[in-house]
């Protein structure tokens, strides 16, 4: 048994210590917001936080996560549905996603960047985000959304109202 702390919950997992964290999260814990893209750590779709650092979960053995705080896209927002992380709010406001498959990973990389650098330059953003591939080519909007999120993190009082998406009650059978 491996004991993990995932999104603030302590879990005991029966898994091969060599099993990549990605598949523990997806197949055993059954949180599916974290995506499989390449299995080699070269596309960033599987990005999660390990003690706040963005890592590629597809090449990280679950044993390496022991004793560390794992955060996935599901754990990024607050406890309520409307309590999105400022990066998620900026993503929604800027209509960043197209197909959306890479965006969990993009958001995890962006939020790790903003946690250590609250006013990143364009170069900082390029540096932090170039490990995450987006085949739809949403890069310009990703950059814009990170700048927006940085602004809102530095003046959080004004952020909530202006960022509230106008689709909050939207329903579809394509969402869980």
């Amino acid at each position: 048994m491996i004991t993990l702390s995932l999104n603030g919950n302590d879990l005991s997992i029966d898994a091969d210590p060599a099993m990549p964290l990605l598949w523990v999260i997806r197949d055993i814990v059954q949180l599916q917001g974290t995506k499989f893209g390449c299995g080699q750590g070269v596309c960033g779709a599987c990005t999660v936080h390990l003690d706040g650092i963005a890592i590629r979960s597809c090449i990280t053995p679950v044993s390496a996560a022991k004793g560390k705080q794992i955060t996935t896209i599901e754990g990024l927002q607050g406890s309520t549905e409307a309590d999105e992380h400022p990066v998620q709010q900026a993503w929604i406001k800027n209509n960043v996603p197209q197909c959306g498959y890479c965006q969990s990973g993009q958001i995890m990389s962006a939020s790790a960047l903003l946690a250590r650098n609250t006013s990143p330059t364009d170069d900082d953003i390029t540096q932090a985000m170039s490990g995450n591939i987006c085949r739809c080519g949403t890069y310009p909007k990703i950059r814009q959304a990170i700048h927006d999120a940085a602004k809102n993190l530095s003046s959080p009082a004004s952020s909530k109202a202006s960022m509230a998406p106008s689709t909050e009650n939207f329903q579809s059978d394509l969402s869980s």
Binding site: L31, Q32, G33, T34, K35, F36, T72, I73, E74, Q77, E84, Q88, W91, I92, K93, N95, V96, P97, G100, Y101, Q103, S104, I107, P165, S166, T167, E168, F170, S172, L174, S175, S176
Partner: peptide, 18 residues
Amino acid sequence: IRLDAPMKSKGTARFGID
């Protein structure tokens, strides 16, 4: 706003793999 932007920004969008 794109209707699918919130679900795709929160990890709740269900793709084939999910």
